[in-house]
């Protein structure tokens, strides 16, 4: 049974936030493909969500010091106990709606720190992009996530790579002047309010700074890339922007 136009319209807010059962999602998708007005409504709802996030994004969000200053914080709070990054990232990237909601910035940084350190478990040292791609494929990384960019023009040397801890992505490591740059490639990541936004052609670069680690997120067809290094995010964004411009 297919839905009438009014029923589809009523379902759009739930459709946009991903809170519909799969059979209804399919029906709504078909209706949107056939009806440009409904598609425009869905687009407006999506864009309003994004605009709302931008409106309420605040780089000066009260940090941990605010929290630890609260009078009821327990004694153990000050201890920096980091949960294994792979597990956090798995939750952030998992297929379930709950897991997909988890803001993954801390997990992405932890993956950066673990992978850029020497001797990360499962790391494949390989400077040849084709051989690295073959090894990663063998290690279970889906072909569409094997984006191994040639960054020699930027002075970056390919060091190697490994499957992401979640098993749902690829990690590609580069090095320049002793600084490690990590490219994390996933199919999807939850939205995270960025510190800076920059447009390069059709691509939006979203920058984040987490302590000493800068991260730049950008999206391609069906993939999300996060490029990170122990540098200011602006520097990394400039590098990514140069590379994107060079690619036209």
């Amino acid at each position: 049974m297919s839905l009438d136009r009014q029923a589809v319209s009523q379902l759009l807010p739930c459709f946009v936030c991903g809170d519909l059962p799969p059979d209804l999602i399919e029906q709504v998708q078909r209706a949107l493909e056939a009806d440009p007005e409904l598609a425009a409504q869905a687009r407006a709802l999506r864009e309003a969500e994004a605009a709302c996030r931008e409106l309420l994004a605040d780089p000066d969000a009260p940090g941990r010091s605010f929290f630890s200053a609260s009078p009821l914080a327990p004694q153990g709070f000050g201890r920096a106990l980091l949960v294994a990054a792979s597990a956090v990232l798995l939750a952030a990237l998992g297929a379930s709606l709950h897991a997909a909601a988890q803001p993954p910035l801390g997990g992405l940084v932890e993956v950066h720190l673990q992978t850029s350190g020497s001797g990360a478990l499962g790391f494949i040292a390989q400077e040849d992009p084709a051989r690295l791609a073959a090894s990663l494929r063998q290690a279970g990384v889906p072909t569409d996530l094997l984006m191994i960019a040639d960054l020699r023009a930027e002075g970056l040397r390919l060091v190697g790579g490994q499957p992401a801890p979640s098993g749902l992505g690829a990690l590609i490591l580069y090095e320049k002047d002793g600084v490690h740059y990590l490219c994390q490639v996933y199919r999807a990541l939850p939205a995270m309010p960025p510190r800076e936004l920059q447009q390069v052609g059709a691509t939006t670069l979203r920058s984040y700074q987490h302590g000493s680690v800068g991260l730049v997120r950008f999206e391609g067809p069906g993939v999300v890339c996060v490029f990170s290094a122990a540098l200011p995010a602006e520097e990394i964004a400039a590098l990514v922007a140069r590379r994107l411009r060079a690619l036209g």
Binding site: P62, F67, P74, L81, Q102
Partner: peptide, 12 residues
Amino acid sequence: GEGLDRLWQDWG
């Protein structure tokens, strides 16, 4: 009684 800082880092 551990991990609150991590929780806040992600959810704050």
